[in-house]
Write a protein that binds this DNA or RNA. Sequence first.
DNA 1: GCAAAAGTGTTTCAATTACACCCATGT
DNA 2: ACATGGGTGTAATTGAAACACTTTTGC
Lengths: 242, 242
Amino acid sequence: MTIHAEAPADRVTPTAVEDERVSLAVSTVIFALRPHPVTGEPTIWLPLVRRIREPHLGRWALPGGPLRPDEDLAASARHTLERTTGFAPRYLEQLYAFGRIDRSPDRVVSIVYWALVRAEEDAHGVVGDNVEWFVADEVPALAFDHNEIIEYALTRLRAKITYSPIAYRFLPEEFTLAQLREVYEAVLGRRLDPANFRRQALRHLEPTGRCLSGRNHRPPALYRFPAPASPSPLTFAKEESR
Amino acid sequence: MTIHAEAPADRVTPTAVEDERVSLAVSTVIFALRPHPVTGEPTIWLPLVRRIREPHLGRWALPGGPLRPDEDLAASARHTLERTTGFAPRYLEQLYAFGRIDRSPDRVVSIVYWALVRAEEDAHGVVGDNVEWFVADEVPALAFDHNEIIEYALTRLRAKITYSPIAYRFLPEEFTLAQLREVYEAVLGRRLDPANFRRQALRHLEPTGRCLSGRNHRPPALYRFPAPASPSPLTFAKEESR
DNA sequence: GCAAAAGTGTTTCAATTACACCCATGT
DNA sequence: ACATGGGTGTAATTGAAACACTTTTGC
């Protein structure tokens, strides 16, 4: 109990569930970009795990688990990420704490993080029997309120990408402007003007000097996102750094 | 335990603090606008409560308390708000879940809300021996990480007011444009051009027809913020409605 | 040469900013 | 009358959007 200064008698002794404590879990919505199975266009994917116990046994759910007493919140999210994708997050931020009383038979508050990872091929290797990747807006009916949570995470991703340079975290170290634009188009769900996009994007990128040849058109230049000079120029949204 | 699908043996049995559970508290940063004690200009204030037990006995802290198993997160925040200011919140939103391992001697995760209330005179009445209002950027050294939390809440308030119409929640039902502008000036900490502010603000306001006389200049018109037609046009940030 | 995408230039439009100016009221 | 803020008008600036056009590669 942290900050309880006043405790009127009528609030100390609740109805019935007296000795029952509230338990705390940490889950993570992990986003990656991969080609859509039918259209082939870059699409948002996420990994889900199959529940191996009640409640909701057998249904798909967000990866996560109970918070260990010796573990920070973000560290917990990082671990589920490692378990599920085998990668360290390229971006990790707290999403929201979900605590509705009726979201689970027992009383569980879930602190949910969202993460961006690269869609390397290796990621496939980690997928076991109980982990499977889904296209983000084609997920089945999930356990608990996890559909809601994913909806909200997508909202946040789409909002954040418009004002914060996180798109490059889906991509390899060096990338073309077309690749970066495809990330934006996949997330926002609409086409962007290549000319205008280029001008805006270049304000935040630095050229590597190299370029990508081999396709049947003019070879595009490769860029990288410069590491920020100060530890965090504007810690606006409490991003968890590595 | 909600969504634990995989539990490798090395993670089930932690180091030492095995049976120790993590406990959960809900705290609220409550903002109101009042004249600054020396300059008299509108300023952000917030109420703090004095701790009546260890740890940090005697220090000021955010109002809050342990989460009851039969209570939703926002409901818990609403109660501390009622206890502390005697008012229902005019605005309530989840801020962040703070869970650093070292933030308290025992392991506590605090889910923090932030709220806006009107600075009615009545609010003074509720202030007991253990509750006191402080100017937001003149708070003393607080218990736990509560100084940090308040800093972050202020950041969020200042950011949010620039893109979301929450300023009017500091004000009575009907208000003048000058009052509304003073809210923005107090929160943002800089003067705004009255002419330009008016044009922008009018896009979201509706006139009441009445105006405010009695001052030694042209009487300003009174406006109100129209109730949104749909339940929530853009539930962008999971605002908790009443 | 042709297709396809990279990359440049230009025009239009909307929103913000700065600031000059008039209006209505109490003293 | 005049001080004080309420309220209107307007020109300058900025950035986003639309789109025509040139460049460079593979075939």
